[in-house]
Design a protein around this nucleic acid. Structure first.
Lengths: 152, 152
DNA sequence: GCTTGACCTATAGCGCGCTATAGGTTGTCT
DNA sequence: AGACAACCTATAGCGCGCTATAGGTCAAGC
């Protein structure tokens, strides 16, 4: 009844004032450390050189934050820095939309495979846990007619 | 109709002859390199010292393979070597079943959280892909009434 | 006026998980 | 007999992704 329509882009609900966020605020918003954020910039993972205030301090605006959220998504799904650098380079170059799409599609396949693998592993883990729980119960009841689970 | 009942323990369908497998065969069976397998042994991740033939070559038996499968599962779901070492130590010590169970349960929670995070990331990735696809279509039709997706 | 804290650059260091190399033995095949 | 492949030990090295350190600027608050 009070279902909310699926959000279509935000993926980051932090409001960014017009003057932008400091690096500390931006880092906190996307879940990175300040040094990692600077490191990412040095590595060429940001879309364009971060804008600066007169004192040289970085300012992160809405679009920076959106890009960062995507960057974090790619990293946390296992895309290496080097690959993200390529994606960033493409994203700076007009007319490369198709290549970007292909890069994302390839990565998607990797993520799906990884998900599947992890789900299988989770099932195996659950089996193991179930065996130990069964043993724990038999112990409690001092039944002792059960061997401890095979240590596998 | 020809559904197979869910397998309850195997997780590794390779038949192990009585005389066991060589390290090369064992590594192939669980998807590790020979050196990684030796490395794991050195790091104390194996249940007990691998048995040897008269010539000093390692032999891996069924129970070794089962343990290895579990080890690979733990590694691939992100458990650090150091933690696996602790689990191995517990598994060598009788009466530690409860602690093992707790370790597995804790790890399970981590895996579930990780799965959830990855699924959210996948959704974000799909949104991005959808945007690029929509753009690709509009391009094809030479409609050109659409901006390329925001590079986020 | 002085301290504090957040920012800045540049560069060095590190933890993790392998991976590679050197040097050797053993067993099998031609 | 010689070559090869697979194994062995011991140890060094490396790629990745940060993380820490040194030394400095600047603005705000006491």
């Amino acid at each position: 009844m009070d279902r909310v329509p699926p959000t279509l882009t935000p993926q980051l609900d932090v409001d960014v004032p017009d003057e932008g966020l400091s690096i500390g605020e931006a880092a906190a918003a996307v879940g990175l450390s300040v040094q990692t954020l600077r490191y990412y910039e040095r590595e060429g993972l940001l879309l364009d050189p971060t804008s600066r205030r007169s004192n040289g301090h970085r300012r992160f605006h809405r679009n920076d934050l959106d890009w960062l959220a995507g960057l974090v998504m790619l990293r946390e799904t296992g895309m290496p820095i080097a690959d993200i650098r390529k994606v960033a380079a493409l994203s700076r170059t007009p007319g490369t939309e198709k290549q970007r799409l292909e890069a994302f599609e390839r990565h998607r396949e990797a993520v799906v495979a990884q998900l599947k693998r992890t789900q299988e592993h989770l099932a195996a883990l659950d089996t193991k846990i179930a065996a130990y729980r069964a043993y724990a119960v038999s112990e409690e009841e001092t039944i002792h007619d059960q061997q401890p689970p095979a240590s596998t």
